[in-house]
Design a protein around this nucleic acid. Structure first.
Lengths: 153, 153
DNA sequence: CTTAATGCAAACCGTTTGCATTTCA
DNA sequence: TGAAATGCAAACGGTTTGCATTAAG
């Protein structure tokens, strides 16, 4: 599914995570370390099952489904991971990197592939309208649905 | 939750729906008619449970949960209803009216209220970027999360 | 009468939780 | 040694499905 090109820990995200966890008085466990390592390399949103499989495959360490969810939930609470709701069966998760470009998602409704994209004009439009809307906007999520090139062909 | 101001069948949506269903060789059932009537009046996305409750309340006719889902699924397939994924526990559904303004959603993460909004500049940005992206875009969904005025106060 | 529509209850399946065990500081 | 981390299996909850019954054409 998503390519596996190791991007080499973006802006020390994993380190930042370890720090935040320590500050929150957490101990370091092997499952969480393996998951942090994986998320630091993945460039786009994965499901809990994809994460579980990826961890088992790279033989880093098998992590139980429950732990995957627990750890993701914990990281989300610390603002280190964000949930991406693509409208597919399973929710996806991806790291939130501080100095990385903010991106959104393209979803192929035929094969299910999820790709990231970003657009400055779009962000501007959202920032602008966020001020005129009856909601103190904290975050936004944009998902474009359609057919990817392979499926449309 | 959502206000109940009857908007009086937008652009004959219910009629259009009846027509499309007949064209698809479907028979008319009481459950579906009640649901169409409700959706024609509601201006924003409802969950299956909200629909079920609303139908029971307005005493139009009680409709079983299974039928609510089946009918919504059928209408979605005909392009008469669209699923709105707000990231909350339950998916929401709303009618797709032909000559009605395309809108998106604001979600208060504290109380869960969902409000519609629309913005021309945003639509323009999306139309424009849709042409530069590696996906034949068929639809898009934008959800802004935050705190509504009541909750932020 | 033939086929679609509906209700009910059971099945599904992604996610969460309880609890016993292991690991870290 | 005490708290956090983890795995396993059971529980949850929204959605879907199988099947028997009712109703539309």
């Amino acid at each position: 599914m998503s390519s596996h090109a190791p991007h080499r820990a973006h802006d020390g995200w994993a380190e930042r995570a370890e720090l935040a966890l320590a500050a929150a008085g957490r101990k370091r466990g092997g499952a969480r370390r393996a998951l942090l390592e994986l998320l630091a390399e993945e460039r786009c949103a994965l499901t809990a099952v994809e994460i579980e499989d990826a961890l088992r495959a790279r033989s880093a360490r098998a992590v139980s489904r429950a732990s995957v969810y627990r750890i993701l939930d914990e990281l989300e609470g610390l603002g280190l991971v964000q949930r991406v709701d693509t409208g597919q069966a399973m929710v996806r998760y991806e790291r939130v990197a501080e100095h990385e470009e903010h991106h959104h998602h393209l979803v192929c409704d035929e094969c299910g592939i999820v790709m990231p994209f970003s657009d400055a004009a779009l962000e501007r439009a959202i920032d602008s309208l966020s001020e005129r809307v009856p909601l103190a906007v904290s975050e936004h999520e944009i998902v474009l649905h359609g057919s990817c090139r392979d499926c449309a062909a």
